Amino acid sequence: MPDKFGKRIKELRTAKNMTLDDLAKATSSAKSYVWELENKNPPRPSAEKLSAIAKALDVTVDYLFGRDEQSVGDATDLAFFREYTGLPSETKEQLRQMAKILGAKKDK
């Protein structure tokens, strides 16, 4: 029976309508490797693969392992923020302006 790590990968993958092949391609892995991560206990992924899987699923590695009490929404926000911090300053400013516009629409 898969552990929390495997269950979370499968739940996130299926929620994104990704097949095992899709996630394997997105993480430069074999389909069988992704299947093993979802179904074998305990999983033994490398740090590089963990990072690639978390990025492909738009969450944090901590969320995948369930080491904290993050909700999937919180994990998605943290993953977005990490990606945001690496963007050029012009792109960050554009995103901030978009957030203001979207926030103003919500208030109406």
Rank of each mutant, 00 (worst) to 15 (best):
S51M: 06
L87S: 08
Y63Q: 00
A104Y: 12
P45V: 07
K100G: 10
P2S: 13
E36S: 15
R44T: 05
L50K: 07
M1L: 13
K7P: 03
F65Q: 02
R8I: 02
E36D: 15
T91P: 01
L87C: 09
T85G: 11
F80N: 02
M18A: 09
E11Y: 11
V59Y: 00
K7C: 11
K25Y: 07
P42G: 05
V72I: 11
L20W: 05
S71F: 03
S32T: 11
R82K: 07
D68R: 13
K10R: 15
E93D: 14
P45A: 06
G73W: 03
F80W: 12
A47M: 10
L20K: 07
K7V: 14
L23S: 07
K49F: 05
S89Y: 12
I9Q: 00
I101R: 11
F80V: 03
R82A: 10
T14H: 03
P43D: 08
D62P: 01
A54L: 08
A47E: 12
N39C: 14
A79D: 06
R96F: 11
L12S: 05
A54Q: 01
V59E: 04
R8Y: 04
I9D: 00
T27N: 09
T27C: 15
G6C: 10
D3L: 13
R82F: 02
V61N: 01
A15Y: 08
E69H: 12
D21M: 08
A104Q: 13
S71V: 05
M18K: 05
F5K: 00
K100P: 01
N41F: 13
S89M: 14
K4R: 12
D107H: 11
V34K: 02
E90H: 14
L23C: 04
M1Y: 04
Q70P: 00
D3S: 07
L64W: 00
F5G: 00
L20C: 09
T76Y: 01
L23N: 02
T19L: 08
V61T: 06
M1Q: 08
L87K: 12
D68I: 02
K7R: 15
P88E: 14
A99E: 06
M98K: 15
R13E: 07
L102I: 09
A24E: 01
P42M: 09
D3I: 09
T76K: 07
R67H: 12
K25R: 08
I53V: 15
L78P: 01
P2L: 09
L78F: 08
Y84H: 10
A30P: 01
A56D: 03
N17A: 08
Y63I: 00
K105S: 04
K7I: 15
D77N: 11
V34E: 01
E83C: 04
L64C: 06
